[in-house]
Design a protein around this nucleic acid. Structure first.
Lengths: 233, 233
DNA sequence: TTCCCGCATCAAGAAGTTGTTAAGACAATA
DNA sequence: TATTGTCTTAACAACTTCTTGATGCGGGAA
């Protein structure tokens, strides 16, 4: 968060509610960005990283869960979900999917503002990441979910990309085979440790200068793997 | 948060609600502490720091705001406030006073559980930040599971690292060969005392300035080994 | 001094883990 | 149904770690 006033991104398709939020929030001297579709919201979030996101779950184009998931792939920005009453399952799903708070419509402005302040307090501690990660010859656009090497697009399969994301997210940490299996393949498959080997080999082949002498996807024998990228980058 | 299941402190004077929470939460295999007054809650929180606090605002002895304030003087534990409907001012005051979330009674269990999980996720993330041990030229990053010496990475094998951890954990204490064997090699192998010698030698070679004149991995003749690191560090 | 004992060091082979390749299974698509 | 791309699985080569025995060192006792 910069020294200027906090930036809030509203992702909401209904104009009246957007108007209402705009009025309530700018009274508090927050800066605002608005998006009326999920895709637009993701794009705006990337271009101008907000300090808090207010997200309506009922958008026309993308599922709310999907938006949360895609945002969380590269950002830790607090997400406050707005949604209609009586959708408990949805609430739970949103919170477990990575949202930080939930406000039920119709909501009291005071409460919403207080929850925004709480979210801002939290986000103060955590640093914002970039939506593009680079290492060596490789550039990963986390929002577009496209990987380039020497500016040439490299195609990754879904699981390859998911594994890459997981390793990027835990940059520098040793990740056990078991952990990677759980993160990428899901909680069921905690046995087939060999998958990880094959897919790390694939990533090396596609992204390392010399796959036999990896610089980024490092092996920790007997433990697991570690992604090592210089901190400065 | 330790490796055991998360500890939740319930501060709530009404027995029926406490019972209800107890049933709902222990189903999820959380550990529970309960307090029926604010003072008791503060005392329990201090004696056994919880991972999440569920706080009823309407307690007989202390004002809810007061409890939040006193907790926040020394703890960052997530506080989820429980309170009756239609007390918006109170809600706002609680959130601004340092509470992290607010659930309105009567609440849906599923939602409460989801909010607890969200709170735990937050506190986990903060705890993960740093846990580094240093001695001499050596730095051990316990989260990343990486060891540096003069800022250069030193590779340790699984058993070497495990032995190092064991000795760090019991800093200053004399550890018998038998104890180290049990801790590092497992309960079966309590005979082969030679292993310990070889691995301590390895650690010295990798981490001591002069392996022949160890400063940290000290021999206690006839007994075992002792790790000695200045307490101040 | 010489012997003895516990500790340190080294290195070779055993045991286990990881890298690599490729073929088959499977699912989605045309 | 054929095609394509992806995932799973197996086999084996290459590599790392662990175990083990041989050897050397040093202090204390005879």
């Amino acid at each position: 968060m910069s020294t200027t006033s906090p930036l809030i991104l509203i992702i909401e398709d209904e104009l009246p509610i957007r108007r209402f939020l705009r009025a309530s929030l700018s009274d508090e001297s927050y800066r605002l960005n608005e998006a009326s579709t999920g895709m637009e919201g993701l794009r705006v979030a990337q271009q101008q990283p907000p300090d808090v996101v207010l997200l309506d779950l009922g958008l026309p184009d993308l599922d709310g869960q999907e938006i949360i998931r895609r945002l969380r792939e590269w950002s830790k920005v607090p997400i406050i979900v707005l949604s209609a009453r009586d959708q408990e399952a949805q609430k739970i799903q949103a919170l477990d999917g990575g949202a930080d708070d939930f406000v039920t419509k119709p909501f009291a402005v005071g409460e919403l503002l207080a929850r925004i302040r709480t979210a801002l307090r939290h986000s103060n501690a955590e640093a914002m990441e970039s939506s593009v990660v680079e290492f060596g010859e490789v550039r990963v656009d986390l929002v577009a979910r496209v990987v380039y090497r020497n500016n040439k697009e490299i195609h990754l399969t879904p699981l390859e990309y998911k594994l890459l994301l997981t390793m990027l997210k835990h940059n520098g940490k040793v990740l056990t085979h078991r952990f990677l299996l759980r993160e990428v393949w899901g909680p069921s498959d905690t046995t087939e440790l060999h998958y990880v080997r094959v897919f790390v080999a694939n990533l090396r082949k596609k992204l390392e200068r010399d796959p036999a002498r990896p610089e980024y996807f490092l092996t920790e024998p007997g433990v697991g793997y570690r992604f090592a990228r210089a901190i400065s980058q």
